[in-house]
Write a protein that binds this DNA or RNA. Structure first.
Length: 426
DNA sequence: TCTGGGGTCCTAGGACCC
DNA sequence: TCTGGGGTCCTAGGACCC
């Protein structure tokens, strides 16, 4: 029988922080987005205080202090490292692991055993991750990925499932969907949930019980696919190619933002460098490059400005220096010197991505590609051996300041020898 | 004072083709 | 009065995900 598992880490970022802060195990915790902007992760205790996902920090700062909530700036180095540990452990439990996000993965559980076996197997896997990595997870097992997601939410909601909910029969499926909000179904967002409510569809079961013809008459193909999945027909599979079709690096800046062109050049050069690293990391080249920067969209009383410049290269590249060069040229072209705009956010996007071994050559190419590749290889080699960004383009600057606020970041416990947790100090 | 970052997919509409 | 039909490709914008 075709069965999918979904392993979902509970409140992942908060759980990561707790791994090295066992004193916070029962305490309310939140993690903030980049630049300490919004709440992006909450422990169960914080959820019970009524804190909502995406709330700007400054709006609830007082509430957080009153309830002694421990607040962390986001520490993606730590989360990425612990995610890797979780994924590697999960991969031992299935012939086919599909990581779906930093804290979730689908597992192929087809034809592995009867219901009793699978239920115990899922529970054992959850207990293993908890014990070995320190992260609590919820496992759902069902005939489609959408249903596996529903099952995992039940596993999280009720402790009685011991970390794993098996939804293998039609009976269990119907029962689960009858008390599951349609808006919580994978693929049904806020907007669709509102539209569905207009048709008196509020529970997942309400949608599943409609005719396929009715669904396809009123909604697009995505909703039809979700409808099929809710009825046990598997038809959604996440993109299995690991290569991204676009690569973006962008950040918000603290306080007033950035007014100085030279500083903005420095930051965007870093974003471009990071993008090029990611690009080479997946053995790709790109021929589309966009740079953008804009003033705060919340400060409507001040004059705003948007820089948004794109270029298409005749020959795709993944060389940092070349990409940085185009980004700076476009940034300077879009920058207004007439007024001192305070740019609050900036970024670089690479697109038109192709495999690096399938780059279309150009008869009139002015770049010596062989030389360029050799240089890039040498730089990557040095940086791999000596640490990231030991050799870099000069315009990127030498400071490690990112222009973002992150006052409450926890140490890089697992990735920097100087920040190892101390278990015992004399 | 203060509002994240990084993706994917679908659709509608325009340009263009014969 | 009246203005083909059918197709592809591209793009911007919207919706969704975590």
């Amino acid at each position: 029988m075709q069965l999918y598992g979904l392993a979902d880490c509970n409140n992942f970022y908060c759980s990561c922080e707790r791994v090295f802060r066992p004193d916070l195990r029962e305490a309310p915790v939140v993690v903030l987005s980049n630049n300490d902007g919004c709440i992006i992760a909450r422990s169960e205790e914080s959820k019970r205080l009524g804190l909502k996902m995406g709330t700007p920090y400054y709006q609830v700062r007082h509430l957080l202090e009153t309830h002694h909530v421990t607040v962390f700036s986001s520490n993606y180095t730590l989360y990425g490292s612990l995610s890797g540990r979780v994924m590697s452990l999960l991969s031992r439990y299935t012939p086919q692991l599909e990581p779906y996000s930093i804290d979730e993965a689908f597992l192929d559980f087809s034809d592995m055993g009867d219901a009793a076996f699978l239920k115990a197997y899922g529970e054992r896997m959850a207990a293993d991750v908890r014990r070995s990595v320190g992260i609590p997870i919820s496992v759902g097992i069902a005939p489609t990925r959408t249903l596996a997601k529903v099952a995992s939410k039940y596993a999280k909601r009720y402790a009685g499932y011991r970390g794993c909910c098996l939804m293998d029969t039609d009976d269990k499926r119907r029962k689960a969907l009858s008390s599951f909000d349609v808006g919580d179904v994978w693929g049904i967002g806020r907007h669709l949930a509102e539209t569905l409510a207009g048709h008196d569809i509020r529970l997942a079961a309400d949608l599943a019980d409609k005719d396929e013809a009715w669904v396809s008459r009123h909604f697009n193909v995505n909703v039809v696919r979700t409808w099929k999945e809710l009825n046990g027909i598997s038809c959604i599979s996440p993109d299995d190619s690991p290569e991204k079709k676009s690569i973006c690096t962008s950040r918000s800046f603290a306080d007033e933002g950035v007014t100085d062109l030279h500083l903005l050049e420095e930051y965007t050069a870093r974003f471009a460098t990071r993008c090029a690293d990611k690009l080479r990391g997946q053995a790709s080249c790109c021929s589309g490059i966009t740079v953008f920067a804009y003033t705060s969209r919340f400060r409507t009383e001040q004059p705003g400005h948007v820089i948004h410049q794109s270029t298409v290269l005749p020959v795709a590249t993944n060389a940092t220096a070349e990409i940085v060069g185009h980004v700076l040229r476009m940034l300077r072209a879009g920058f207004r010197t007439s007024a001192r705009y305070a740019y609050k956010k900036a970024g670089v996007v690479l697109w038109n991505i192709c495999p690096q071994n399938a780059v279309q050559q150009d008869l009139f190419d002015v770049v010596d590609r062989q030389k360029q590749t050799a240089l890039q290889r040498a730089v990557d080699h040095i940086n791999r051996r000596n640490g990231p960004d030991k050799v870099h383009v000069a315009v990127r600057g030498f400071s490690s300041d990112t222009g973002a606020r992150c006052d409450r970041r926890s140490p890089h416990y697992t990735t920097d020898v100087n920040e190892l947790p101390v278990a015992f100090a004399r």
